[in-house]
Design a protein around this nucleic acid. Structure first.
Lengths: 366, 366
DNA sequence: TTGTAAGCGTTATCAT
DNA sequence: ATGATAACGCTTACAA
């Protein structure tokens, strides 16, 4: 079928390797076929092949179309995205910068975002900052150097020059979960006020009166601040209730131990106590500390935690949690980015999704 | 300081936007500076700038070196990695293809791998296959189209054409956790035989005699097969003990319920029962099923699970688990890849790391 | 030590 | 409908 002259030198240049009857049609060290190879094999110009690739079918005769199609299949050709990106400025790359990759919340959102990226033909570059400003700076620069079209940023909590520098690089940015004060970047996250109110109200309604919110050092990180503020505001609506904030260092066990001891030792012994953990990590640290101290849930203290984790209902009689639609968040982030990439110039978007309370044994009625 | 003529037209071409006193030195819609811009600003050739960038300091006069350095700083220039990759064939990109991004095991390894990538100047592209052959095929193709230099593959379990196609594309491959029969790709994972033996022996030594291993359908997936085989072999060393395999569908609760019921109803009522869960996901499903059935751990049944999860010690009196050095695995994977990229042609590497048993209450002595 | 020029694999412009 | 040809931003012979 194929004239011998057309066959692009597949002849073995291998030395030593005597696999003469190799099933793979391509020699091990053959250079990858380029658009030029396809053009030659199909007897057309590179331009025509490019048109075929770009879907400009209308400007192609059925004749050539078939020739090209078959040549592509024969050579197992696939376009080089780097070259395409360089020329067209469309890399179809999206960066996901996360403060903590092992945080189940981030992972869950990442899951949704990755799926959305793939759905829309994008590929995700993942970077972890570990909560370090320096690293965040570094990875944002790195992503920009790859000409990603957009970045989803779960920031360390403050606006940095590295973020500002994305703008001239034409990289679209959307913030996840954490707002950046004084900036007007798009934002998507949880409706912290309502979610916190829901949880706090639930505790109050179930008879808890001496409340506390455990959080990582607020340090201006928006969800921590918002949750704390909403918690205190809600507690204030119940005259008989008190509420306080305990900041803990999640990397230091004794920190949580101390906070727990301080809270449990507080005066109002008669008032049923409960703790709202402001994040999944804090929930974990808190539960560990309570276990170490031999404090019973919910008998000695009620517990509600942000972020519904897979194991929430396995601990004790189950931990009451605030769930977030993480997959949906991931998809929303990508969609928002793609809209901007497509030229959407609407004013800053600030979209929040509602959390839902999943009531389990840890906040049982008192 | 800077002669006016040297300043590359920063002059505002903005229409409408009247931010005359903008703090950012670069106009919003200015094209990014290229190596040519730097060369012009520094009064040297592109070549010299490229040499500077490439660290060819020896071939550069101190004079020009400073000029270039200052020009780069002035323009806030950063090289375009796409262009560099296209020309040099070095993209500094590594793909991580994982069967299940939300699996804590994968996440933990990813954490280590991401850190290693960054350490060595690489950036990670993350793809999730959800265990689908088709998706694996698709994402491998996508990664190849970006000319990643290497891929870490947590495969769906079988060798596919998509994997074979990476070879002509000169993409290095290293398998994580799951071997691919009939292939000779580099492999790094857990020493399943020893880890399983450790866990099984522990159960036997603690008096359990009626054992079972719960696993997802083996389907030729190597860790599942190896763990099951090692489990059965170890059980066989104890004449008074019996052991069986229960395959469960982790996406269907009733599947685990049925398996648990079947195992618990089995004859040998006198023999203390214990279950070895062959993965973190299975452990989770198992614990849920036991909770639903009201079966007490370890009184009614002992439990040991693969993969040490953050919450392992919070459930009941703690779940005995087999921990893996996941961060180390991640780094090993990247190092292996980089070695191959650097031209290492050593024969197929098959490296296993030892797991360690973390003994908690779920396997207490009978 | 420095620079010129030719590509890397695409797409886009402009002819034809 | 089709095809030269010039970019995209960079590296690298090869010259000087």
């Amino acid at each position: 079928m194929t004239p011998p002259g057309d066959v692009d030198e597949i002849s073995g240049r291998d030395d030593g390797d005597a696999m003469t009857a190799a099933p793979a049609p391509v020699a091990l060290s053959a250079p990858l076929p380029t658009i030029a190879d396809v053009a030659r094999a199909a007897g057309v110009s590179k331009t025509s092949v490019s048109r075929f690739l770009g879907g400009a079918l209308s400007a192609l005769s059925e004749d050539k179309r078939q020739q090209i199609e078959s040549a592509i299949a024969r050579l197992d050709y696939r376009p080089n995205r780097l070259a395409r990106g360089l020329k067209r400025g469309q890399t179809r790359l999206i960066g996901f910068v996360v403060a903590d990759v092992v945080n189940p919340y981030s992972v869950a959102v990442m899951h949704g975002a990755e799926a959305a990226c793939r759905k829309f033909g994008y590929t995700m570059m993942l970077c972890n900052t570990g909560g370090s400003r320096e690293l965040e700076h570094q990875v944002l620069d790195a992503l920009a150097s790859y000409s990603v079209e957009g970045i989803i940023l779960h920031s360390v909590g403050e606006a940095t020059g590295a973020i500002a520098r994305l703008v001239p690089a034409r990289v679209k940015l959307v913030l996840l979960d954490r707002r950046l004060p004084q900036t007007d970047y798009d934002f998507i996250g949880l409706d912290n006020s309502i979610a916190t109110m829901l949880a706090t109200r639930h505790l109050l309604e179930n008879g808890y009166r001496d409340l506390a919110i455990f959080a990582e050092p607020l340090a201006g990180v928006s969800p921590r601040c918002e949750r704390t503020a909403a918690f205190l505001a809600e507690v204030a609506t119940e005259p008989a209730a008190t509420g306080g904030l305990f900041e803990i260092d999640t990397t230091d066990e004794t920190s949580t131990d101390r906070a727990v001891a301080a809270f449990m030792a507080a005066n109002r012994q008669a008032a049923p106590k409960a703790i709202l953990a402001a994040s999944g990590i804090v929930t974990l640290c808190l539960l560990r500390a309570l276990a170490r101290a031999g404090i019973a849930i919910p008998d000695d203290v009620g517990v509600v935690g942000f972020d519904d984790l897979a194991w929430s209902h396995l601990v004790g009689t189950g931990i009451t949690t605030i769930g977030q639609p993480t997959d949906k968040l991931g998809e929303m982030l990508v969609r928002q980015l793609l809209a901007r990439i497509d030229g959407d110039t609407a004013p800053r978007c600030d979209r929040v999704v509602p959390g839902h309370l999943i009531i389990r044994g840890s906040s049982a009625r008192r």
